[in-house]
Design a protein around this nucleic acid. Sequence first.
RNA 1: GGGCGCUUAGCUCAGUUGGUUAGAGCAGCUGACUUACACUCAGCAGGCCGGGGGUUCGAGUCCCUCAGCGCCCACCA
Length: 852
Amino acid sequence: MPSEPSPVPERPSVDGLEARWLAQWEHEAVYRFDTTATRETVYSIDTPPPTVSGSLHIGHVFSYTHTDLLARFWRMRGRDVFYPMGWDDNGLPTERRVENYFAVRCDPSLAYDPDFVAPEPAAGRGEKRAISRKNFVELCQLLTARDEEAFKELWTHLGISIDWSLEYATISPLAQAVSQRGFLEMVARGEVYSSVAPTLWDVDFRTAVSQAELEDRERPGATHRVAFALESGGTLEIETTRPELIPSCVAIVTHPSDERYRHLIGTNAITPLFAVAVPILAHELADPDKGTGAAMVCTFGDLTDVTWWRELGLPTRALIGRDGRFAPADFSSDEFPSREPAAARARYEELAGKTVNQVRATVVEALAATGALLGEPRAITHPVKFYEKGERPLEIVTSRQWFVATLAHRAELLARGDELDWHPDYMRHRYASWVEGLNVDWNISRQRFFGVPFPVWYPVHGDGAIDYDHPIFASLDALPVDPSSDVPPGFDESQRGQPLGFVGDPDVLDTWATSSLSPQIAGRWGSDLFDRVFPMDLRPQGHDIIRTWLFATIVRSHFEHHRLPWAHAVISGWILDPDRKKMSKSVGNVVTPMPLLEAHGADALRYWAACGRPGADTAIDEAQMKIGRRLAIKVLNVTKFVLGRLDGPTSLDEVTEPLDRDLLGALAELVDEATADFEAYDAARALERTEAFFWSFCDDYVELVKLRAYGDGDEPTTRSARAALAAAVSTLTRLLAPFIPFATEEAWRWWHEDSVHRAAWPNPSEFSHEPLDDVGSIAGPVGVVLEAIRRAKSTAKVSQRAAVARVVVTATPSVIGALVSAEGDLAAAGSVGSFDYLDGDELAVEVELATE
RNA sequence: GGGCGCUUAGCUCAGUUGGUUAGAGCAGCUGACUUACACUCAGCAGGCCGGGGGUUCGAGUCCCUCAGCGCCCACCA
């Protein structure tokens, strides 16, 4: 749908370009993916589906612009660019946002209320109203739909060249079906398993989390030195930061080579306060240099406890419940075999039902009172494991979870990382160190509500017990299923929860277990489209999610397709605030993009983003945005000038003047370099080169040939200048099109019917039918003389139009030849009366200004 | 503890495989209303390239080492 070229305005402006061209692009379907394209011609992008949690961030502008630069480059190179958009709307961030926004909480035991009306936004205050799971999910969908509109508005306004017909959402039925199929395929191949195991647990969200979602935070704590009585007499001292776990102590470990304790190995210690006998054992992980060298093993204080518990075959005395409070325990039972059951029971009654912090205070007090606490607790700051979105330290609780067997495939996954092209390359180390450091399989179960359900049911025995060992899986053709409302094959709804009936798996999949299938979701896995776009060319993403999204996507593709999901990964850096501090909500320095976009324009923001090197942290810099805006304005003005000189089509054969041919040669080199930069995924470098060339073109070349271009349209010298100017403007506009799509489109459409964004990327062979040698041999010396003339006038504080009586140049014969060939242009640009030349090795220029 | 990155002009950054006197933009200063552009143009000034050592005819660039900043990973009692 080409349109007639639009008229060149009297005063070109970058204001208002966005509205005009966005509408036109939409109308012309400029960014539409050709769904019949074959894999060889496709360039496919695994676009990051942003977490739709409500707030736009300037970082979004940064990284999505980087991707768009590549999309536009490859599109102009003739590839069919598959550039979809996804929304990661399922998962905890959305749930939390919905809870706060509407002041509700999900209670899965409630029945669906079909007449439920979304409450007014409540700003997170007051009592949260309990609603059913289905009503809760509906609110999640309501809110994410609104948020997605805001994101879409930003992408569109920024000129991100997404094909919106390829939009997807991770909570959509399609994504759910793909996610569930991915799970079932792994089940069939034996790559997932369910087990009851100690699991990292967030006590506020009340869900298991995976190793990938952990983060360490420095927290104040205290080490307590505690004396355990020995069965053989005497005491053994340990140090602990978690004295509240003494009632769940199951052993004490020391290093096998530690002479201080070797004689105690195999004997028992007696826990203080609770008088439970625990064995003293040896294990390599016990560090003689930490604390007293003897460590208390509890079920469970940290992941090391889990290792000791597993490897030493220790009993389980789990006390911390899913709500983070101490559960009831019977200290006269086999599980808690106290030697003083009455006293232990009495002590524990004080603790049951309390939070970790409350119990700690009570236990420390009691230890001090009984003399088991040695000295004062010593305050320390130490790293504590948190769920990355959590507010209280993680606990380890035992629960049934589904796991993906990643550990068994560590070597293959490392090899996949080696195989991938990383931009910048050093980011590969992040992946490798993460994979090398994996210590538990990937837990993909979450005890939450707004997510993709496991397509799994369990039979119920006659006695009402659930048979987890014989799960019933959905069939692939039934997907997506919701086991809480759908019924497994061979059952009917009346048997739900009944003896000899079934129950649905109540959990949802980890959000990464779905988004790790983004290539399969966007590519409509199972349709013929998938083979046209997969494996994809590009995965753009932030470095903070290498261990989650990037890793998980490789895992899934490796298992499912035995190959990498993409050839290249481009990793964006952080956005820093103008003071080079990392932005965070808690600091309150998060910058939202819309005001900047309105103040400077899309091209200006894109320019700023494009200047950021791959992987490099970049500060918000409004000065840089202004430079981008200036560049956009200059493109309009120089195009206006050149088009004003043209009286019809030009031909390269008309470029006969040496200075003009020199320009074409330089253009050819520029195109070569910019193309190579883009192919190496370094758009910033391509911009830097192109921009430098463009400004020197405007300030030097255009000034030199301006008067010649104004001349008689039948003169060969005039036609030469005009043809060279046209070729240069055409080329530079296209080279700049990925960066400043609005201004380049505006200027391009003054003399073309079709979008510059569908125009062919420049090719060096466009510039001449003959070889262009010695590039710069004319422009170089000419530039030196021009600069000398300008300097003389500036120093004399006269106008650049002031007349020059005579210029004397000393140079070698070949340089003099070059200058003579461009003497007319130099004379015109510098208002020079006459030139004289002297032979000499060093280029020297003497300028004699004309006297009034 | 292991690893990665950064450190170049007041600021933000280029500097590709080692090769003349280290570049750009911004900010600063001095000028110019110049028929595409005052949202412009010209010019000037500004640098022990983090410190130290080495390799080399030659080092911002390669090697070693130290320091500061940032990040990743780690079994954190």
